[in-house]
């Protein structure tokens, strides 16, 4: 009976104008309470749905663009941004964050100094995060000496210690892409990220050695040596200051094997007029071969120096030792 009554009143109450305080007061109150409870419950449901939606949006945000990691001072800063920090707490949050940013800057500087590789941009995006497995997409770019690189790969992480690189893509902005091409395709095929960077470092070190050597020769024999492509290029030009027709080019280049070994290749290309060769043919014509055998025994620097001294390029005024 009570239940029927409740229902009836429920109907009455819902019709505006039909509401009279004609029932017993207790009953009425309970009724209104029920009404309120319903309203509240509906509100809760609505809010819960909203919260769920927001959670989802946050997750999607992580996947769509950059994934952020909120830990330590970053977590506190996020709380600050959400208005959860008050009064003096705010200053503490800011100074802590500032301190850590400075610390990170110093760390990065040290890594660049030791490694010689400068990473200038890294964007991460979470592709999949289910259970114990996490897949992230990395896009990293930077430079190593004068070489600009960009790598993109997927990193799968199962628990803490099993990390794998997949779908590696490498772009290298090199002046001499030929020497790298077969190595790069092998690296991409085998997802050999670490090997790529080891080789890149060795390669740029060798380039720096070459630059130093070229500069050294230019300073030591300024009238003979010129660097038409600048000190970073692979060509050095040797010529007698008064015999403009007789020129030797030293091509100092590298080849990268599929295993990542950087192999030195130096060639000597003589450019001597036909007529001159008649008088001179024996030593100058065979110079290229002789150069290679010298290279094997003396090494690049001493070989080049002996070429400069040996083929009579030096005017008498140049220092002899």
């Amino acid at each position: 009976m009570k239940r029927g009554m409740k229902l009836l009143v429920g109907v009455l109450v819902r019709i505006p104008g039909l509401m009279f305080p004609c029932e017993e007061e207790e009953e009425m109150m309970r009724e209104e309470n029920t009404e309120e409870l319903e309203v509240l419950e509906a509100q809760i449901k609505h809010l819960q749905a909203e919260v769920k939606g927001l959670h989802q949006q946050l997750q999607e945000e992580d996947c769509r663009n950059i994934t952020f990691n909120f830990e330590g001072p970053m977590k506190e800063a996020l709380a600050f941004m959400c208005g959860l920090t008050e009064g003096e707490g705010k200053e503490v949050v800011v100074s802590k964050l500032e301190e850590e940013v400075e610390q990170l800057e110093r760390k990065i500087k040290l890594q660049i100094q030791i490694n010689g590789i400068s990473v200038t941009r890294c964007i991460t995006k979470t592709l999949d995060h289910s259970g114990r497995k996490e897949v992230q997409l990395f896009c990293i770019s930077g430079h190593c000496s004068g070489l600009d690189f960009q790598v993109e790969f997927k990193l799968s992480e199962v628990q803490e210690h099993q990390r794998t690189v997949n779908e590696l893509n490498v772009v290298l902005d090199s002046k001499d892409p030929q020497s790298f091409s077969s190595f790069l395709s092998r690296v991409e095929e085998n997802n050999n990220l670490l090997l790529f960077f080891r080789t890149l470092r060795t390669f740029s070190d060798r380039c720096a050695d070459r630059t130093r050597a070229f500069q050294h020769f230019q300073e030591k024999f300024p009238s003979v040596v010129s660097l038409p492509g600048g000190c970073r290029s692979e060509v050095m030009r040797l010529s007698h200051p008064e015999l403009s027709g007789c020129v030797f080019f030293v091509y100092w280049s590298f080849e990268v094997s599929t295993e990542g070994a950087v192999i030195l290749k130096i060639r000597l290309l003589p450019k001597i007029p036909e007529q001159a060769l008649q008088f001179y043919s024996q030593p100058a014509g065979g110079a290229a071969e002789a150069f290679q055998s010298l290279l094997r025994t003396l090494g690049p620097e001493a070989t080049i120096e002996s070429v400069i001294r040996g083929v009579g390029l030096l005017p008498d005024a140049e220092p002899s030792s």
Partner: peptide
């Protein structure tokens, strides 16, 4: 992220 990248590329 930059530090993480350094680690990942084997620096």
């Amino acid at each position: 992220d930059l530090l993480r990248a350094h680690r990942l590329i084997g620096g």
